[in-house]
Design a protein around this nucleic acid. Structure first.
Lengths: 251, 251
DNA sequence: ACCTGAACACCGTTCAAGT
DNA sequence: ACCTGAACACCGTTCAAGT
């Protein structure tokens, strides 16, 4: 009846009378991200995502070209949160060229790390080749960020070769370190993992004599080996990396 | 009838008259590894693995406690190929204590890297917490290797604290670097990935104006950005790491 | 225009049944 | 002792059909 009155029957967005807003690609992607953050990548299923947004799974295919496309969209969304330079709405463009590329790399590294820790289950997708530049090594899915990286270093008088080598070294360090850090964070939430059966099974679970008493050093140093110094190590490694880059472009 | 004659009706292993040897846990694990190396982790399915070894999927459950158990067995198998010190069957125990821990770490690093490159799809499982020592950070699944690492460094007069810190730094570097290197290698073989549809879809594939012409530096430097220097970078980073460790224990 | 039911070809896993 | 058929509860994805 409302269509007879000329009302916007085909409104693009906006809540229906049940209170939840109309389905949209954007909404689906955000729901998927929230779901992965809570339950891990493998738990994300088209059917579960459907019920999450209040719809049957098949309806998602109006907005998304299948699971692969969804993951790509999620990656782009996450990577879109990266801003190589601070949002220049805050201050006028005073330090726009940035005082030295050290500060730039420092800021970029911390930005990427923040994204990684916010979405540990999703981050591995960021170390994935971009469809428009699959040859990029190491693969950092944000071409925006890579372009800005190169432009910044070159604007600071680095040669093309040095800029490329700096990209290689920097992104290699960053992705490697964060991939490991994130795999630790992710292991907490993800699947059930170990069935932790203790030998009463009929299956010869390999003659695993590997209870801790066989590894005296590990056992003795357990307290120290279980400390988590992720942040300190990251800062330390980042500093070392910047030193290495200094030496690189000086030679 | 053969059982009446007292023949070994229940022979533990050995080919049946069809030519392929009788099923065993070991055989299943090796088939699984070969399959993963060829088709990737996600392609490994209980049913496919069954047909691979010439049996229905359900039969595998006589030997393996489900998919999770299988992956754990695979990891242990791969990790078992690591030998921190050279197999001392070659030479008599002449240089057994090894001439300095630099050489030891060098050898260990190359050994782990060789395993990683041989099984890029499986390697990520090695950066996973061990059931007997889930608190180990970073998580290197071979407690044998970790124990040997600590014992060696301590036998070379490093303090407990320095040994632990060396483990943290060394395994962090190693796992991080190889996780990234392996994700590059794995991306080749794995799933289909990108459906690479080019805009003719009815789904708004996000207004992605990200064809290469928008990233002039990337485009211009493409040849250099696509070079693969994995080995050279690994050696370089390893040398730098050893220097860092030297400075660490000197302070 | 948007959603769904039913269907298809797959999963992992269990269990009673075959030999 | 070892393997299998049938079954169950799940997957992703397609398509004709509903409103």
């Amino acid at each position: 009846v409302s269509s007879e009155l000329g009302l916007d029957h085909h409104a693009a967005a906006g809540p229906d009378r049940a209170g939840r807003s109309a389905l949209s690609r954007e909404q689906i992607i955000q729901a998927a991200i929230a779901f992965i953050d809570r339950h891990g990548l493998t738990a994300l299923t088209m059917r579960r995502l459907g019920t999450e947004v209040g719809v049957e799974a098949m309806s998602l295919y109006r907005y998304i070209n299948g699971r692969e496309d969804l993951l790509e969209a999620i990656t782009d969304h996450i990577v879109g949160q990266l801003h190589p330079r601070p949002t220049n709405g805050q201050q006028p463009a005073a330090e726009q060229p940035i005082d030295g590329w050290h500060a730039y790399l420092q800021r970029l590294a911390h930005g990427v790390r923040a994204v990684a820790r916010a979405h540990p289950h999703i981050f591995p997708l960021i170390a994935t080749r971009h469809p428009a530049a699959p040859w990029l090594r190491p693969p950092l899915r944000s071409l925006r960020v890579v372009e800005d990286f190169l432009a910044t270093l070159i604007s600071h008088h680095l040669s093309d070769d040095h800029a490329v080598q700096a990209y290689r070294t920097f992104s290699g360090f960053l992705l490697g370190h964060l991939l490991l850090e994130v795999s630790l964070l992710g292991a907490q939430t993800a699947p059930a993992e170990e069935p932790l059966d203790e030998g009463d099974s009929n299956v010869p679970n390999a003659d695993q004599q590997l209870h801790l008493e066989n590894f005296p050093h590990i056992q003795r140093l357990q307290p120290r080996l279980s400390e988590d110094h992720a942040t300190a190590e990251f800062e330390q490694a980042l500093d070392d990396l910047l030193d290495r880059l200094d030496r690189l472009i000086a030679e």
